[in-house]
Computed example of a mutant assay.
Amino acid sequence: MAEDTTVREAPAAHLPRTGQRSRPPARGGAGARAPRLARPARPWLRVAVVGVLAAVAVLCYLFLFVRGSFEFAIERRLTAVGAMVLVAFTQGVATLLFQTVTQNRVLTPSIMGFDSVYTLAQTAMVVAFGGGVLAATDGVGKVVAQTLLMVAFATFLFRWLFSGRHANLHVLLLVGVAIGMAFDSVATFGQRVLAPADYDLLSARMFGRLTAADPQVLPLAAGVCVLVGVVVVRRHARLDVLHLGRDVATNLGLDHRRELTLALVCVSVLVAMSTAVVGPLTFFGFLVAVLTHQVAGTHRHAVLLPMSFLLGVLVLVGGQFVMEHVFYATGMLTVVLEFVGGTVFLVLLLRKGTL
C-alpha cells in the first residue's frame, strides 16, 4: 500500500471568549496560576485599632456635652467610666476563660448560678430587715461580704465535684444549673411576701447599674482585677493548651485538673466582684466573647484577653455615650445589651443545635 502523504491541518487552538484576554502559562510548565497565599491576620494590629477606638470613646464620654459645673460632671463621669472599665474586664475575661475551660462558645459563667446567689442574698436581706437595709449597708464591707459569699459557693462546688472519682465538667455545669434554679425559686418566693415599697427597692438592684456604682469600692475592685489579670496573663500559653481538651493537654504535659480549677476560681472571683459592684449582667460577657472571636482573628489567648477587655470598654462606654446624648435614655444601656446579647445567644444556639 502506498504511504499516505496527505497534509492534515493542526487542530484549532482554543480561543478565549469575547472580551477576555488569554493569560500566559505560569512559569515551571504549569498551565494554571498558582493560588495566592492568604495574608496574615495581624491580630495585634486589630488590638491596637480597637484600643484606639476605646480610648476615643472614653475621651468623648468624659469631655463632650458637659452642661453645668465641669467639676461635678467630670467626677460623676469618671466614676461611671471606672465602673464600665471594671465590668468590661471582669465580664469579658471571665466569659472568655469559662468558654475556654468548657470548650464551648455558647455557655457563660451565669450558668453556674452566680446571679442566683446574688439575688438570693439581696432578697434575704430585704425579707429580714426591710428595704432600707440595701442603702444602709452599701459600701466596701457589703461588696466584700457578697464577693466572699459567691466565691465560697463556687469554690465549694468546684472542690466537691472535682474531688470525687467521677469528676466531670459536664456534671459541674448540670449541678450549677440545678442549684441556680433552686436559688431563683427561693428568691422568687421571698419576693412575693415583700411589701410593695420593699419590692420596688429590691427590683432596682436586680439590674446592672453602671452609672450608679459606689466610687469607694472601685479601688478595691481594681486591685482584685489587677491581681487576677496578672495570674491570667502569665498563664496565657497554658490556656491555649487547656482549650485543646483534657486528653491533648495531659499528653502535652499540662496538669489539666490544676489549671482547670485555677481558671474556674479566677472566673468566680471576677464574676463575683462584677456582680457585687454593679449588679447582675447575664449576657453582656457572652456578647463581648462573640465579638472577640470574630474580630481577633486568632485563637491565642495572648491576643484574645486584651481584645475582650478593649471591646468591652468600647461597647459599654460608646453605648452609654450614644444612649445619653442621642436617645436621652441614661439607664437603658444594660437593658439594651441584655436584649441584644440574649438574641445573639438564641441565634447561635439555634444554628448550632446543641450546647
Rank of each mutant, 00 (worst) to 15 (best):
A2T: 10
E3V: 12
D4M: 04
A10F: 13
H14G: 07
S22C: 05
S22G: 13
R27L: 13
G28L: 07
G29F: 01
A30Q: 12
A32F: 13
A34E: 15
P35S: 00
L37H: 10
A38M: 09
A41R: 14
A41G: 05
A41E: 11
R46I: 07
A48R: 12
A48C: 11
V49F: 12
V49H: 04
V52D: 05
L53V: 00
A57D: 02
F65A: 11
V66F: 06
F70S: 10
A73P: 04
R76C: 01
L78S: 10
L86G: 13
G92N: 08
V93R: 09
L97K: 06
T100F: 07
Q103N: 11
L107W: 06
T108Q: 14
S110N: 14
M112S: 08
G113T: 04
S116N: 08
S116W: 08
T119F: 11
A121G: 08
T123W: 00
M125Y: 08
M125I: 14
L134M: 11
V144N: 03
Q146C: 09
T147I: 11
A152P: 02
L157Y: 03
R159Y: 11
R159S: 14
R159W: 12
W160V: 15
W160I: 09
G164Q: 03
L169S: 08
V175M: 07
G176Y: 07
G176C: 12
M181N: 12
M181G: 13
A182P: 03
A182H: 08
S185T: 13
F189N: 11
G190K: 08
Q191Y: 09
L194Q: 01
Y199Q: 06
Y199M: 05
D200F: 14
L201P: 02
M206I: 07
F207H: 10
A212P: 07
A212E: 15
P215M: 06
Q216W: 04
V217F: 07
L218C: 08
A221C: 04
A222H: 02
V224S: 05
C225L: 07
V228P: 02
V228S: 05
V228E: 02
V232E: 01
H236S: 15
V241Q: 00
V241G: 00
H243G: 08
L244M: 06
R246C: 00
A249H: 05
A249E: 03
T250Y: 04
N251K: 05
N251H: 15
G253T: 09
L254S: 02
T261M: 15
L262E: 12
A263I: 03
V267W: 00
A272V: 02
M273C: 14
G279M: 01
P280D: 09
L281G: 04
F284S: 00
V288Y: 11
T292V: 07
V295Y: 03
H299T: 15
H299C: 06
V303F: 00
P306N: 01
M307W: 03
S308I: 03
S308P: 02
S308C: 14
F309T: 10
V313D: 00
L314P: 07
V315L: 13
G318L: 07
G318V: 10
F327N: 01
T330S: 11
M332R: 10
L333I: 00
L333E: 01
T334S: 15
V336I: 14
E338R: 09
V340E: 05
G341C: 03
G342V: 04
T343F: 13
V347T: 05
L355I: 13
